[in-house]
Simulated scan of single mutants.
Amino acid sequence: MTLEDLVRLRRARDVMDRDYARPLNVPALAEVALMSPGHFSRSFRAAFGETPYNYLMTRRIERAKALLRRGDLSVTEVCFAVGCTSLGSFSSRFTELVGESPSAYRARRHEAVAVVPACVAKILTRPPRNGEPVRNGEPVRIGEAESAAAS
């Protein structure tokens, strides 16, 4: 993979980070990266370790967690606000990544995160990816994985 390919893939990833709520699909993202859809999907996975769809859904779930912590929107409103079109698919993916349903996450207390700067909260509340271990609905951080495996 060339440096030019990586620059184009990064451009497509930036579009996903910025425009996660818009309807995005592989052909549209491949066009941003100036690649064919198949080549884009393979190259994206090779460069970033996950498929474009998984990356986009992780961004959407991160944003959904922030909206659910606020507590002023219903789960359905959050689903559509982050660009998902199916409440069932959104709930299933949210539960898969976070370890609890959107409703349960929304009902849980989040005061501890409220006092943390947004840039740190984003890292601490990031949904786990690529088989990362999960404990109490949150990813286990570096150095904690051994204690999670022991418990």
Rank of each mutant, 00 (worst) to 15 (best):
P27L: 09
P27V: 03
P27R: 09
A28F: 03
A28D: 11
L29W: 03
L29K: 07
L29P: 02
L29C: 03
V32L: 14
A33K: 07
L34F: 11
S36G: 12
S36P: 00
G38T: 08
H39K: 10
F40Y: 14
R42W: 02
S43R: 11
R45W: 00
A46D: 12
A46C: 01
E50L: 15
N54V: 09
N54D: 13
Y55C: 08
Y55H: 14
L56M: 02
L56R: 03
L56T: 11
R59N: 07
R59Q: 15
R60W: 01
I61T: 15
E62A: 11
E62N: 11
R63E: 15
A64C: 01
K65I: 00
A66G: 13
L68F: 00
R70N: 07
G71Q: 12
G71V: 04
D72Q: 15
L73D: 04
S74Q: 02
S74I: 03
V75H: 02
T76G: 14
T76Y: 13
T76M: 09
T76I: 14
E77F: 10
E77T: 06
V78A: 03
C79L: 09
C79R: 08
V82T: 07
G83N: 06
C84S: 08
C84F: 15
S86Q: 12
S86N: 11
L87E: 10
L87R: 15
G88S: 15
S89F: 11
S89V: 11
S89Y: 15
F90Y: 02
S91I: 00
S92K: 14
R93Q: 13
F94T: 03
T95W: 00
E96F: 07
E96D: 13
V98Q: 06
V98N: 07
E100I: 02
S103F: 04
S103A: 15
S103Q: 13
Y105S: 01
Y105K: 01
R106P: 00
R109E: 15
R109W: 05
H110K: 05
H110I: 10
E111D: 12
A112K: 13
A112E: 10
A112S: 12
V116S: 07
P117Y: 10
